[in-house]
Design a protein around this nucleic acid. Structure first.
Length: 1166
RNA sequence: UGAGAUAUAGCUCAAUGGUCAGAGCAGAUGCCUUAUACGUAUCCGGUUACAGGUUCAAGCCCUGUUAUCUCAACCA
């Protein structure tokens, strides 16, 4: 006999393990792809993780999202291939290697170092390091149920992958989208390397430091000619100065411009020089600064001081504003070079406009040293201003920056770069010179470059004010020293000039959430800057560009074949001795062939090429690893060397779907978009879900150092993958941050999975008793089933619609919530509860069969709908529900023929089975039942006590019909004998009036409030007249307003003398009088309950028939006698005897209610 | 500093501009009417972050502020 499997308890982790094995044995994942051969592909790209770090719980979250839609689309019949990938290059890997080998960057390839390591060995170590946690990644992938093909992943260090990347770079180069330029980048002189923003953002890198700042006076050239368009200064002095503030005085020798804001108001102020040179103490000067900042430098009260009364050395100087103008009027003025150590080559010392200028601090005029600030560089370039770079890469001034007294030449510009001994030597030197020159009486400590420049300026009468200023400044994470911003050579992709294309293509992308696409991403695109590809590192893809020393010749290599040819040529010309690609056979795409060489450093650097007789050397940089991952659509298929058609024929491109963390917006999402747009004039993905972060339960970021990181392995072991995934998906929208709380998983476990497990258990228990097995070929049409069945089937169709729609719009949390609600509210707490008797009562019948079939269908559909989120449990359910009939299904080629749920086809909602009116009626029944129960609760009447009747006042026929249709359900649910639908002809009903604001709002406008007040006051009269005449006319503020039937809702609220509950437009009254008969019936039900408990405690089967003996009790006997057949049929009792005595040995004492107790015994009868 | 997101009950989340802002969890109080105490019912719980504005009507629309998060930047 075929039996449904029954279980003792729900063990989700065990189910996961069993199903994992089942999938493995049956190659289920492969089948989901092979079974859809020829179907429309649905293209998914896997963003490559880096295997040099352990997987965390956030990876489970991100991968669950990816998995859900791939599974969903598979169910819909698409073929969804999922190629895994590994991101293998980049700084984190270099750092990890250096840490494990105990070396630093200085040791790499440096034979003078005691910890020397060759670039070659270093490269090998990186290769190994990068795959360190591959096992853990594979494990977590399998255990969480993420289906991705890890057998043939793309690996970014693979030669084939690199070859595709080179091809893309060459494509950009040929389209004139790649150029070499220089930018100002964070640079660590101590480490001799540029730093990425990621490095600067490491914890502890930004530190508060105190710097010497100076407000400096730049003297206007030929002040008598100084005119500013409309306003001419009436200057009594020929000394006019721009005031500018700096926190880095060491950049002042490199100053070549000043920046003003074009719409900022500036003033010229006449005052006395605060630090004048000798002999000029009482000669006034004119200073220019932002109007908003005037009061910061000139206290208002000083404006009243008289110039005539000023004496040299007075603390407060008089001042007066002598001119006012916009920044745009100042632009173009020139000034004298502040510290003329070196002359710039080109235009300089001019005032320009910069949009970054503000008046929040400083003077509203910004000192510009184009070499040492990104904004400075930009504004200088825009205005054709030359630059001065008077600091070298070691962080030292050039020798030319030499002052006899205050030193500078060949000096570190930052105090932090000196060690203690150096500082001491410098100090002694300074002491001697400064004291000898009489500049300082007794020098007590080392003076920084900044301090001495300020001193020099002061002495030269160019200083207005000096202060110390505390601000946060970036430090190199490795050397702990402050960074400089320094101009470095770099290769760039021309993104800025293609902004409009990027923005336009972005319109085609469906972003979830939309705001990330239009906002964070869209805004970013609008302002996109050229992409700096260069990285001076060791482990990454080398730039395939070779240049001659005189820069006249250049070659870019786009394939291994090309490289081989060029090397051969170079060998022929005698520039190289051998060809590292000797073994490589172009056109042979085997792994061996591509394993015969290495394109990484140092090999790439050893290649010297030839063009027009000149030696070409490789541009030393590596490319940004983001370019690696952004190349993934093409490089994963080795485009264009292989699979050309997949991309060019748009077969595997662009992706239908990608998903990663929102932190990838300017990472992977961006680089995919840029490369797609520039190389292929296409979007790279159609739909993108940017998911939020996983935080700890208090909303803090998870990190190892905080100890609040959640171990995905432990979590999955404890709760199983399904509960973990379900919790993460259902709890928050993917793009919102998730506060991860284990209690939430527990809740999902008992609420959803526990309920479904129990529902299945119920089905299996009775189906096995009845020897019922579902038969796909012989199902009772839904139209022939009872109202309750038709209702749940109708709700099920609505569920299918809602869930499918939620998945289609990439809103898995909504899908999960719909399923939860259905399972809990509709299926378990209403359908099954109300249907219980149909399952256990009597022999097999049409109605019983319908009940089984209905429940089976509900479980099947729910199982399928939830399977993208909970792949293991749903598979387990599917097997439980269908394994019995698999053989027949295969023979009949019916929908259940598949040996895995994940191979089936998604059900579609059947509109003919949907009955919205029925759904509404049932909702009404639930509402009325709940109201009756709430009255019972208030009146302290337990549900087992039958009551005589409910009255429901009705005002229209439609409502009456609805109640009539669900009357029986309500009565049995609340244990009441009858429902009386009453109207005014029978009962006095208190009614109330509700205004329909939607219709009335238009009608009344500003009089709305008055109408409401009036209606409230005159409710009774209004109701009377509207019921009689269908309209009511009232005058408010001289306006005539006609209330019509549609403008008001009349609802019954009370029946005087009854216990009443109301909710919305429904009112229910309950008769709480208990007659003798009802009392007895209630007692009988109590007895039934006690007997059922005894049956259960005695371990009887649900089908066993019994003999019951009850000790007589005058308060109980009548109740039993009058309800004998009821008691017997409910409890499967053959014979119930009321006896005088019962030995306590075989009997149990029971309390029927607070007052009545007796003895009872039961025994099995066969 | 810029761009973006978020802010609703103790917690996690809902709520086409419309009447009384809802669920689940937690808490309190009951209830085991042959699936389930991993259950179930009832109750308690709100200045919808703050301040303005638009509107007959605002949790929702607009402006500003604050806090938190992400990314980018930190430049005088």
């Amino acid at each position: 006999m075929k039996k449904y499997p029954e279980y003792k308890k729900l063990e989700l982790p065990r189910i996961s393990n069993d199903i994992l094995n089942y999938w493995k044995e049956n190659n289920t994942f492969q089948k989901t792809i092979s079974s859809r051969e020829g179907a429309t592909p649905w293209v998914f790209y896997e963003g490559p993780p880096s295997a040099n770090g352990m997987p965390g719980i956030h990876h489970v979250m991100a991968r669950a999202i990816k998995d859900i839609f791939c599974r969903f689309k598979t169910l819909q019949g698409y073929q969804v291939k999922r190629k895994a990938g590994w991101d293998t290059h980049g700084l984190p890997i270099e750092l990890a290697v250096e840490k494990s080998l105990g070396i630093t960057k200085e040791d790499i390839g440096n034979k003078n170092s005691s910890k020397y390591i060759s670039v070659e060995d270093y490269n090998k170590a990186c290769r190994k390091e990068v795959m360190k946690y591959t096992d853990q990644w594979e494990q977590v992938t399998a255990q969480m149920g993420y289906w991705v093909d890890m057998s043939d992943p793309y690996i970014t260090y693979d030669n084939k992958y690199i070859e595709s990347v080179w091809w893309l770079l060459k494509d950009l180069y040929n389209k004139d989208l790649l150029y070499k330029g220089f930018t100002i980048q964070p640079y660590s002189p101590a480490a001799g390397t540029g730093l990425s923003s990621a490095e600067l953002n490491q914890p502890g890198c930004y530190r508060d430091v105190k710097d010497r700042t100076a407000t400096v006076m730049f003297r206007v050239v030929d002040s008598l000619k100084f005119k500013v368009e409309s306003s001419e200064l009436k200057v009594e002095s020929d000394e006019i100065y721009f005031l500018a503030w700096t926190t880095t005085p060491w950049t002042l020798p490199s100053n070549t411009a000043l920046a003003v804001g074009k719409d900022i108001d500036y003033v010229a102020v006449k005052t006395f020089h605060p630090h004048p040179v000798k002999g000029k103490e009482t000669e006034p000067v004119v200073l220019i600064l932002a109007k908003d900042l005037l009061s910061k430098y000139f206290p208002a009260k000083n404006a009243e001081l008289k110039f005539e009364e000023y004496k040299a050395g007075d603390k407060n100087s008089p001042y007066t504003v002598v001119g006012e103008f916009k920044g745009s009027q100042l632009a173009g003025s020139t000034y004298q070079q502040l510290l003329p150590f070196v002359q710039p080559d080109g235009k300089a010392f001019e005032v320009v406009c910069g949009d970054f200028v503000t008046t929040t601090d400083g003077t509203g005029i910004v000192h510009i040293a184009p070499s040492f600030g990104a904004d400075d560089f930009k504004v200088a370039r825009e205005n054709g201003i030359a630059s001065l770079t008077l600091v070298d890469r070691r962080g030292k001034f050039l020798p030319e920056v030499q002052d006899g007294t205050f030193l500078f030449g060949e000096e570190f510009v930052k105090e932090a770069y000196l060690n203690d001994a150096e500082k001491q030597t410098e100090f002694e030197k300074q002491k001697q010179i400064l004291e000898a020159a009489g500049k300082i009486k007794e020098l007590k400590a080392y003076l920084s470059v900044d301090e001495r420049i300020v001193l020099k300026l002061q002495e030269e009468g160019k200083l207005f004010k000096k202060e110390t200023y505390e601000h946060s400044y970036p430090h190199c994470w490795r050397t702990d020293k402050p960074v400089l911003y320094y101009p470095l050579d770099s290769w760039f992709v021309k993104v800025a000039q293609n902004r409009s294309k990027l923005v336009e293509l972005n319109q085609q992308i469906n972003w979830k959430p939309e705001s990330t696409g239009t906002g964070r991403f869209g805004e970013w695109l609008k302002n996109a800057l050229d992409w700096n590809l260069s990285r001076s590192r060791f482990w990454g893809i080398p730039l395939p560009i070779w240049t001659s020393e005189d820069k006249s010749e250049q070659l870019i290599i786009g394939s291994a074949e090309e490289l081989k040819q060029h090397i051969s040529n170079s060998v022929a010309k005698g520039f190289m001795t051998g060809n590292p690609l000797e073994q490589f056979v172009p056109g042979n795409f085997s792994k061996d062939n591509y394993g015969s060489f290495d394109l990484h450093k140092p090999y790439a650097d050893n290649i010297v090429l030839e063009k027009n007789g000149k030696k070409l050397f490789r541009e030393p940089d590596l490319i940004d690893v983001w370019f690696d991952s952004g190349s993934m659509p093409y490089a994963q298929v080795h485009y264009p060397f292989e699979n050309k058609e997949l991309i060019d024929g748009r077969k595997n491109y662009p992706a239908d779907f990608i998903a990663e963390g929102v932190d990838q917006t300017r990472g992977w999402f961006y680089t995919l978009h840029v490369i797609g747009a520039l190389c292929f004039d296409s979007i790279a993905y159609k739909n993108v879900v940017s998911n939020g972060l996983v935080l700890d339960k208090n909303g803090n970021k998870m990190s190892k150092s905080r100890g609040n990181a959640v171990d995905p392995f432990k979590t999955i072991d404890k709760y199983g993958a399904d509960a973990t995934r379900w919790y993460m998906i259902a709890n928050a929208a993917p793009w919102e941050n998730l506060k991860f709380n284990e209690e939430g998983i527990e809740e999902v476990q008992r609420k959803l999975f526990g309920t479904l497990y129990n529902t299945y258990g119920f089905y299996a228990l009775y189906a096995n008793v009845d020897n019922f097995v579902i038969d796909e070929q012989n199902i009772l049409p839904v139209s022939e089933r009872i109202e309750l069945d038709r209702w749940i089937i109708s709700e099920l169709q609505t569920l299918i619609e809602n869930v499918t729609n939620a998945y289609e719009t990439f809103e898995p949390h909504r899908a999960a919530r719909f399923i939860e609600d259905f399972v809990d509210e509709h299926l378990s707490n209403w359908y099954v509860r109300l249907s219980r008797r149909r399952f256990w009562r009597g022999e097999m019948s049409t109605d019983k069969k319908a009940a089984y079939e209905t429940l089976h269908e509900c479980l099947m559909v729910v199982t399928q709908l939830m399977s993208p989120i909970a792949p293991f449990f749903s598979e387990w359910m599917y097997q439980n529900l269908t394994a019995l009939i698999r053989a027949e299904a295969v023979a009949n080629n019916s929908p259940l023929r598949w040996d895995s749920l994940h191979l089936t086809n998604l059900v579609k909602a059947d509109k003919t089975k949907q009955d919205k009116a029925l759904e509404e009626r049932m909702e009404l029944a639930q509402k009325v039942s709940s109201m009756v129960l709430s009255i019972r609760k208030k009146e302290n009447l337990r549900v087992r006590q039958p009551l005589q009747r409910i009255q429901i006042p009705t005002l229209d026929a439609e409502f009456s019909m609805k109640i009539e249709a669900v009357k029986d359900i309500i009565l049995s649910e609340v244990n009441v004998k009858q429902i009386d639908l009453v109207d005014e002809s029978h009962t006095q009903i208190v009614k109330n009036l509700k205004l329909n604001f939607k219709t009335l709002g238009k009608k009344c406008g500003p009089n709305m409030k008055a109408v409401q007040a009036y209606a409230l006051e005159n409710a009774a009269e209004l109701i009377k007249i509207i019921e009689k005449e269908g309209r009511y006319v009232l005058n408010i503020n001289n306006a005539e307003i006609v209330l019509e039937t549609e403008d008001v809702e009349i609802i019954p609220v009370d029946i005087p003398g009854w216990k009443v509950a109301n909710s919305g437009a429904i009112t229910v009254a309950l008769d709480i009088n208990i007659s003798e008969e009802l009392k007895n019936e209630g007692l009988a039900r109590e007895v039934v309950n006690r007997i059922q408990n005894l049956r259960k405690d005695s371990g009887f089967e649900v089908t066993d028939r019994i003999l019951v003996k009850i000790k007589q009790n005058s308060q109980l006997d009548n109740a039993i006698k009058n309800n004998l057949s009821y008691i017997c049929s409910e409890t499967l009792t053959n014979d119930l005897q009321l006896v005088q005595e019962l030995s306590t040995a075989n009997a149990v004492s029971i309390e029927v209610d607070e007052l009545i107790s007796t003895l009872i015994s039961i025994e099995k009868q066969n």
